[in-house]
């Protein structure tokens, strides 16, 4: 199968500063692909170049075989985009926002259906600012589904969410992935990368250090003779927390 995303020798410079330094990777259709890295590693810049929101300095980026630099408008039609902030008009209700985005993509949708998909149908008449953090992210994800995209980009989708909301969001991402969309997400959480992503690119200082599956990463590390101090723990603090508070989603 051909790559749904192909990034070759991508470089992005701001004057003297090189935000993305000659990176290459590809994503297969149906994958959940994670870009893992600390703040300032160049994750968001890479994402925004793929999303046609930023120009590239050099290199080639193809989404579904289309060059983002040459035919950005065709790319925009095939992708769904979630930004770090939930970026929506504060004075519009959820259904109104979805209706507006449907017009911007020139597609016909039923806003209530879309909300049902992210379990927000009872918030249809709410404004974004009245939603909890997890609900805002779910609404944001609903907005990425409007044009039935082939690829969905999620920029740090679970940053700032409580453990229950994170688990809930992961399930939602898996569900959307199963229905056919390729997903590219950035994160700086190891557990998110390990549990959610099929493959990972680890980025720092604008460069990709390693690409592979979470399991091969660990195997490779162990092969080098790496040894972690072994503690006999059958559970960690998160397990305790979830055991005590339950996995039930909390939202006001």
């Amino acid at each position: 199968m051909s790559d749904i995303i192909s990034v070759k020798n991508l470089i992005k410079k701001y004057n003297d500063f090189t935000a993305v330094n000659n990176i290459s990777f590809s994503v297969q259709p149906g994958e959940i692909f994670g870009i893992l890295g600390p703040n300032g590693a160049g994750k968001t810049t890479t994402l925004e170049i793929m999303e046609t929101l930023k120009s590239l300095t050099s290199g080639k980026v193809l989404i579904d075989g289309i060059d983002v630099a040459k035919r950005p408008w065709d790319v925009k039609r095939r992708i769904g985009v979630q930004l770090q902030l939930s970026a929506f008009y504060p004075e519009l209700r959820l259904t109104e926002l979805l209706d507006m985005f449907a017009a911007m993509y020139d597609v016909q949708i039923d806003p209530m259906e879309m909300l049902k998909e992210v379990e927000l149908e009872d918030k249809a008449k709410s404004y974004v600012k009245q939603l909890s953090g997890g609900q805002q992210q779910r609404f944001s994800i609903a907005s990425t589904l409007i044009n039935k995209p082939k690829v969905i980009f999620l920029d740090e989708p679970t940053t700032g969410l409580d453990p229950q909301a994170r688990i809930h969001l992961w399930e939602m991402v898996r569900k959307i992935n199963k229905s056919g969309a390729t997903i590219v997400l950035t994160t700086h959480y190891m557990d998110e990368a390990e549990q959610l992503c099929d493959r990972l690119a680890i980025m720092d200082h604008g460069e990709i250090l390693k690409i592979g599956t979470p399991k091969t990463f660990i195997k490779d590390l162990l092969k080098t003779g790496f040894k972690k101090e072994i503690k006999q723990e059958q559970a960690n603090l998160e397990d305790v927390f979830l055991h005590l508070t339950g996995r039930q989603l909390r939202e006001g």
Partner: peptide, 13 residues
């Protein structure tokens, strides 16, 4: 500032 414009620029409009 709220990235609302940016989100709109991600659409084909």
């Amino acid at each position: 500032k709220a990235l609302i414009l940016k989100r709109m620029f991600a659409t084909p409009t």
